[in-house]
Design a protein around this nucleic acid. Structure first.
Length: 488
RNA sequence: GGGUCGAUAGCUCAAUGGUAGAGCAGCGUCCUUUUAAGUCGUUGGUUCAGGGUUCGAGUCCCUGUCGACCCA
């Protein structure tokens, strides 16, 4: 797109500036008017009693988004936080002078209006305006009313316009706030305590990801922006906070795509005396309560597959190794050599990096051939032990971990572990990490573990991805108010 | 990082290499229950930027900027 105009660049802007000057010439400062609404639009609409027109008086305020001028009367609509409400103005009610002033208003202006509620012929509850005031002038026009704003760049860069003219965007982004709020209440009811831990860290641990680096001038030190909150929250388990969570912004210095924003929001929850199983119950209850209380539906469309995701009832549980055996059609997959795995992966059309270790080849098959097919909610259990150094080893199969990955719509929504609390084993797991992706070792975290950490279940939930799932959005950018773009 | 596609009026979109248009918005008119209100008239363009080809470029070529999608 072209640059956002800063100067007077078109006639509509010039016309509005002229109107502003005219207002000021008559002693009105359209940016200093005071007005106190009594109700939001949604509240006002509920006050009308059927069959009793013009008995309830309200004062509402909002942005003028529709004008239907009918000569000596007008129907207009204003938009506030709760949505639109229609206003009806008559020349014989407000008076000649005020009516002329009203006609000079522009779409986009903020308006305060006081009047009584009635129902129109076609059944719309409307405010019959007695008094109004221009509370803030808009100097630039709104996007087109029917198509709204479709230019994706402008939608993201000028989100305020998107919110004004695209009701579906507005609903989707506001739903996110309700999701987060609901999660807080859900966890608080279960006696979890919300904390805030540092974004700036000396060691970026808790995950394998490239961090952003920044510099602290006074301390003369580089810091990393956190890539997970895990190691801080586990220190709090050590410190005696048995049920703890953080809904925190995480930063990863990696690609930007439909599924990735460099900063995103993750819920991490840790519960002492619980485990991976406990986390399974919790995530299922959490998501199902969101369906019940926030979105109002247990089924969501999945754009990629055309399927409908059903979040109700019990969710499938399946072991990682079984999924791999199924995908490769090889019941003895895990007793074969790296060379055989590489050949098989190649045959499946996958690119195999020669540097990869054996488990990384298998995991590529999982990522490319298995995960995308897991549309309905699926707990993938017993991941190979190389994949995460922070989880407990499974007792039934010591080559695997006591963990799950909840996958819905072909995307990982929440990984969870029975947390490793053996400090010696933890150190060993860190030091013997395999493969390309290695976590940094946080020595103070190991020291904390040596003081003793209760057994615990822990889980990370990608809030952005959860919102994509719940809203049927096609991109992470559609659930983030201001997604990252190249500076324009 | 690589590939494909895109950028034209405030917005949404047209325009065989040959005079840049429409709808909405704006401006002016008519209309006192409209629902994308309707009616009559009308203003508005550095076609993303910079080069090139051509008698002639919104259109073809090159470079760049920004975006979308796919791949790594």
């Amino acid at each position: 797109m072209s640059e956002i105009p800063q100067e007077i660049t078109h006639d509509q802007h010039a016309v509005r500036l002229k109107k502003l000057e005219e207002l000021r010439a008559t002693g009105i400062d359209p940016f200093r008017a005071s007005f106190t609404p009594t109700h939001f639009s949604g509240e006002a609409l509920k006050l009308h009693v059927d069959g009793q027109d013009n008995t309830v008086s309200v004062a509402v305020a909002g942005r003028l988004v529709v004008i239907r001028d009918m000569g000596k009367s007008q129907f207009v609509k204003i938009l506030d936080q709760e949505g639109q409400i229609q206003l009806y103005l008559r020349k014989d009610v407000v008076g000649d002078e005020a009516y002329v002033a009203f006609k000079k208003l522009d779409l986009g202006d903020f308006l305060g209006a006081q009047g009584t509620l009635f129902k129109t012929k076609s059944g719309e509850i409307t405010v019959r305006v007695e008094k109004f005031v221009l509370v803030a002038k808009a100097l630039r026009p709104l996007p087109e009313k029917w198509h709204g704003l479709t230019d994706s760049e402008q939608v993201y860069r000028q989100r305020y316009l998107d919110l004004i003219v695209n009701p579906e965007s507005r609903a989707r982004l506001l739903l996110r706030s309700r999701v987060v709020s609901h999660i807080r209440r859900f966890l608080e009811e279960r006696k979890f305590i919300e904390v805030e831990t540092p974004v700036l860290e000396g060691t970026a641990g808790g995950a394998a990801a490239k961090p952003f680096v920044t510099h602290h001038n006074a301390l003369g030190t580089d810091f990393y922006l956190r890539i997970a909150t895990e190691l801080r929250l586990k220190r709090l388990l050590v410190g005696g906070i048995d049920r703890v969570f953080e809904i925190g912004r995480i930063f990863r210095n990696e690609g930007v795509s439909r599924k990735h924003n460099p900063e995103f929001t993750m819920l991490e929850v840790y519960q002492a005396y619980s485990d991976c199983r406990g986390m399974m119950e919790m995530i299922k209850s959490m998501i199902q309560s969101l369906c019940r209380d926030v979105t109002g539906s247990f089924s969501v469309p999945h754009a990629g597959s055309g399927q409908t995701i059903n979040l109700a009832g019990e969710w499938r549980e399946v072991k990682y190794k079984d999924l791999i055996r199924e995908a490769t059609g090889d019941p003895d997959w895990f007793s074969r050599s790296r060379a055989e795995h590489a050949a098989a992966a190649d045959k499946m059309g996958l690119h195999v990096d020669p540097k990869w270790q054996d488990f990384e080849i298998t995991n590529e098959i999982f990522a490319k051939k298995v995960e995308p097919t897991l549309i309905q909610p699926t707990f993938v259990l017993n991941l190979p032990r190389e994949l995460c150094p922070l989880a407990k080893i499974s007792q039934e199969d010591p080559t695997t971990l006591d963990v799950f990955e909840l996958t819905i719509g072909g995307t990982e929504i929440a990984p969870a572990y029975s947390e490793q609390n053996d400090p010696l084993l933890q150190r060993e797991m860190f030091e013997h990490q395999a493969g390309e992706e290695k976590q940094n070792i946080d020595q103070d975290f190991l020291l904390a573990l040596e003081h003793g950490m209760p057994p615990a279940g822990g889980m990370g939930v990608g809030i952005d991805r959860l919102c994509i799932l719940l809203t049927g959005a096609e991109s992470i950018r559609d659930v983030i108010l201001f997604p990252q773009l190249r500076p324009g």
